[in-house]
Computed example of a mutant assay.
Amino acid sequence: MIIEAEHLKVEYGHSVVLSDINFYVNKGDYLNIIGPNGSGKTTLIKLLTNLQKPSQGKLNIAPVVFGYLPQHLSQSAQLPANVYEVLKFSNAKKPADEAIKKLLSDMGMLELMYHPMRKLSGGEQQRVYIIRALLSNPDVLILDEPTSALDPEFRKFFYAYIEKLNDNGMTIIHVTHDLSDGLRHGSRILELDQVVKFFGTFEQYQLLGHKKGGHHHHV
Score class of each variant (00 low, 15 high):
residue 1 M to A: 13
residue 3 I to C: 13
residue 5 A to R: 02
residue 6 E to T: 15
residue 9 K to R: 10
residue 12 Y to K: 12
residue 15 S to Q: 10
residue 17 V to W: 03
residue 19 S to G: 00
residue 21 I to R: 01
residue 22 N to T: 01
residue 27 K to V: 11
residue 31 L to A: 05
residue 34 I to N: 02
residue 35 G to F: 00
residue 35 G to L: 01
residue 37 N to E: 08
residue 40 G to I: 05
residue 41 K to I: 09
residue 41 K to P: 02
residue 43 T to W: 01
residue 44 L to V: 09
residue 49 T to I: 14
residue 50 N to W: 03
residue 50 N to P: 00
residue 51 L to Y: 06
residue 53 K to A: 14
residue 55 S to T: 15
residue 57 G to N: 07
residue 58 K to L: 10
residue 62 A to Y: 06
residue 62 A to M: 09
residue 65 V to C: 08
residue 67 G to W: 05
residue 68 Y to K: 06
residue 70 P to M: 04
residue 74 S to P: 13
residue 81 A to W: 11
residue 81 A to D: 11
residue 82 N to A: 04
residue 82 N to K: 08
residue 83 V to C: 10
residue 84 Y to Q: 11
residue 88 K to P: 01
residue 93 K to I: 01
residue 97 D to A: 14
residue 97 D to S: 09
residue 98 E to V: 12
residue 104 L to I: 05
residue 106 D to K: 11
residue 108 G to V: 09
residue 111 E to I: 11
residue 113 M to C: 11
residue 113 M to L: 15
residue 114 Y to M: 12
residue 117 M to W: 06
residue 117 M to C: 07
residue 120 L to Y: 12
residue 120 L to I: 07
residue 121 S to Y: 13
residue 121 S to V: 12
residue 123 G to F: 08
residue 126 Q to W: 05
residue 126 Q to R: 15
residue 128 V to E: 08
residue 129 Y to Q: 13
residue 134 L to C: 07
residue 136 S to D: 00
residue 137 N to W: 07
residue 139 D to Y: 02
residue 140 V to D: 00
residue 140 V to W: 01
residue 141 L to R: 04
residue 145 E to I: 01
residue 146 P to F: 02
residue 146 P to C: 04
residue 149 A to K: 07
residue 149 A to M: 10
residue 155 R to V: 05
residue 156 K to W: 05
residue 158 F to Y: 14
residue 159 Y to S: 06
residue 160 A to K: 14
residue 162 I to S: 04
residue 167 D to S: 15
residue 168 N to G: 14
residue 169 G to I: 01
residue 169 G to T: 01
residue 172 I to G: 01
residue 175 V to F: 04
residue 178 D to K: 00
residue 179 L to E: 08
residue 179 L to Q: 07
residue 179 L to V: 11
residue 180 S to A: 13
residue 180 S to R: 13
residue 180 S to M: 13
residue 185 H to G: 07
residue 186 G to M: 08
residue 186 G to V: 09
residue 192 L to Y: 04
residue 193 D to V: 03
residue 194 Q to N: 11
residue 196 V to N: 02
residue 197 K to V: 13
residue 197 K to S: 13
residue 199 F to Q: 04
residue 200 G to T: 10
residue 202 F to A: 15
residue 203 E to P: 00
residue 207 L to G: 05
residue 211 K to N: 10
residue 213 G to H: 02
residue 213 G to I: 02
residue 215 H to M: 12
